[in-house]
Write a protein that binds this DNA or RNA. Sequence first.
DNA 1: ATTTGACTTGTCATTTTTTGACAAATTTAT
DNA 2: ATAAATTTGTCAAAAAATGACAAGTCAAAT
Lengths: 113, 113
Amino acid sequence: MTSQMKTTFGEYIRFLRTEKAFTLTQLAAKLNLDSANLSKIENGKRDFDEKRLIILAKIFDLNLNELRNEYITDQIAKKIYETNCSKQLLELAEEKAEYRREINKKSKKLKTT
Amino acid sequence: MTSQMKTTFGEYIRFLRTEKAFTLTQLAAKLNLDSANLSKIENGKRDFDEKRLIILAKIFDLNLNELRNEYITDQIAKKIYETNCSKQLLELAEEKAEYRREINKKSKKLKTT
DNA sequence: ATTTGACTTGTCATTTTTTGACAAATTTAT
DNA sequence: ATAAATTTGTCAAAAAATGACAAGTCAAAT
């Protein structure tokens, strides 16, 4: 499995966990989480808290940035899925994101002036 | 201004409002909203509640589906912007959304079996 | 210069959503 | 059959979003 795979983040955690033959309870403890809730996370019934990415990276010796990429792409995928956003609309969304970046640039300039 | 423009949803509402020469107070009343909060919405400091899309469409005589598209692309753009998601990662996100759709299809099949 | 109207900003209580925790049920492996 | 692992349901607590109102700025009109 490469660092960028097309699964949910929950499934990815499960993959990492089973690969190292941890039980839910074991991994949950490391993550300072209840095993029941970790189960829900792996099954996509709850979100993994972004704050725990750091420790998750440490546990499995992963590059934090790559892990974060896994995470944010999952977050956005979830939103795309939930909103039933077509590819065409997604392109528009990307342009709108670009527009937001432009606005931000400009407002930063104003602040320093 | 076409139905699909590259602005924020807040700016779009402001455009619609000023086009019809409504004051914040007037439009807010129609939307059953406080004018102060509508101001925040237009200035991107609060989100527009999806539930109000229906009435917004009525007020400005817009196609609800197109308006909804404006809305969801804005929502996703916001997420892309906030997470600093690159175009490359966005493609991955789209694939992951596709994956979620696949999963969903399969789970529906199981239910009917 | 004061008043008026439109808009913005800050704050806070309320509501809604998310999370953590625990108990109970189900599944899996031995 | 038993034990361990996992899943599911529930509920209180924490966190985030929303509604409401007061106080502020700003511009135009008087």
